[in-house]
Design a protein around this nucleic acid. Structure first.
Lengths: 245, 245
DNA sequence: CGCTGGATTGAGGCCGATCAACTTCAGTGG
DNA sequence: CCACTGAAGTTGATCGGCCTCAATCCAGCG
């Protein structure tokens, strides 16, 4: 969190296979297909691409909101700062996901964002985005659709027990990370500390529940490597329909 | 929750003072200003207005998402159902607020909605809304703005302690209900049970914290009547910057 | 090989849930 | 007007889950 931003700029000009799965693809796509000048509002253009090293920050709190950030590959955490200086993880963002919508209304980021590993980020100017959307309203439905989806993320955060929260978190991860590997087998991009901070529990509790889930043979976990052995049981655990004493 | 829907339909035709403060006003407004046929996509028209009696339901779980609902006056709670049949309050909606965005992506409501008191609701067909937005993209910015705002509601739900959750809830209410009365003095539209269900704590805990806040002379509360005596202290409590033993 | 930071495991304490009793309020009908 | 009734709210005692603090284990790395 003290590292300077390591930005490796490059202009996007070719159709990029790494855009597959990005929520902006149908919009952003046109940039690749169309032969277009910079002034043509009929295309959404990527302002730049940034490569963040691990722990590098994408933006800092109170920074004016000017861009949407699409994660091309890698992972980002957003961090809120409490009055007493404590840090709380606000959210995680993975390949294909977009940071920024929640900051439109205030025109300012109220949190910081940092890379969990080397991360490639597409920077989209919000004004360009608006211009594009006004010129191409046929994409509105698509944008509403994935904003709507984003509004439903993290429902498990308010679960009653720590078990349910963590189970919900793992289910969530398995669906959001599966592009990289098999759906039920993935690497945790973040530390136990970060998981705990996000779920509002201690890293110790995270660790204890992980070993408990392992003993029940619901998951196999060793440090950052996770394999979900009983996806259905895990899901039921998250929903509270089973307790397993 | 067993009462049938009591719907008193009436077509909106005149500029209505009760539209003041509604998040859709700048869009919906045009319906009043423009002399427009039903087929003119240049206006967003209210499909109908519904008057719900207390406890009447606006929609039920698994019902297809077809409309946005704007609360004209009154209050609505949305309810999730757990696997074991338990009910959890998912959210509250007050005058000027809009229900539905979070259900766009799935095309289905995954929860029910019920009136907390007599409530007037504007029904907006989502297809009409899309048509209007495509024809009038200049309103996009406004829509993104209040959807963005809605994404930031309920941050206090994930607070660590019950004190902070309830303090955050009261601060939230005071800002969202103040149209009706003075900002620091309002009636709770919902029961202790509902508050507890929403904040994921028991009604007993809600009650205990209320009396504790009263003893500290931070609020004055008697049943549904609330007066915030020390707004700043309450806010600091919600943010965790004070503890007050 | 030792160092360092993350992860795990253990013992004790506190916050909030649970269960139960009592009080107050709102609605109804006599 | 009051008596009755059921729902909602308050208050108290006990219990359990998670936090706290501390020690230990382990992987990665110079």
């Amino acid at each position: 969190m003290t590292s300077p931003i390591t930005a490796n700029m490059q202009t996007a000009q070719t159709k990029d296979p790494s855009c597959r799965g990005c929520h902006l693809t149908p919009l952003c796509h046109t940039i690749h297909d169309a032969t277009t000048s910079h002034l043509n509002p009929g295309s959404l253009r990527v302002k730049s691409r940034i490569i963040l090293q691990k722990n590098a920050t994408l933006f800092m709190p109170d920074q004016p909101f000017q861009h949407l950030y699409a994660i091309e590959q890698g992972a980002v955490k957003t961090i809120e700062y409490e009055a007493d200086g404590g840090e709380l993880i606000r959210g995680f963002y993975f390949s294909g996901e977009i940071i920024g919508y929640e900051s439109i209304y205030s025109g300012r980021f109220h949190f910081s964002a940092a890379a969990l590993s080397e991360t490639h980020v597409c920077v989209i100017d919000y004004r360009d985005f608006l211009t594009f959307m006004q010129a191409n309203p046929e994409y509105q439905q698509h944008v509403f659709h994935f904003i709507s989806m984003q509004m439903n993320l993290g429902a498990y955060l308010v679960s009653a027990t720590a078990n349910r929260k963590l189970a919900g978190f793992l289910v969530d991860l398995s669906s959001r990370l599966h592009r990289q590997t098999h759906r039920d087998e993935f690497q945790l991009p973040m530390s136990r500390q970060d998981i705990g901070s996000y779920l509002r529990m201690t890293a110790e509790t995270v660790s204890r529940i992980c070993t408990w889930l392992q003993q029940k043979e619901i998951i196999a976990i060793q440090y950052k490597s996770v394999r979900i052995l009983q996806p259905d049981t895990l899901r039921q655990l998250a929903e509270g329909s089973v307790s397993l004493e």
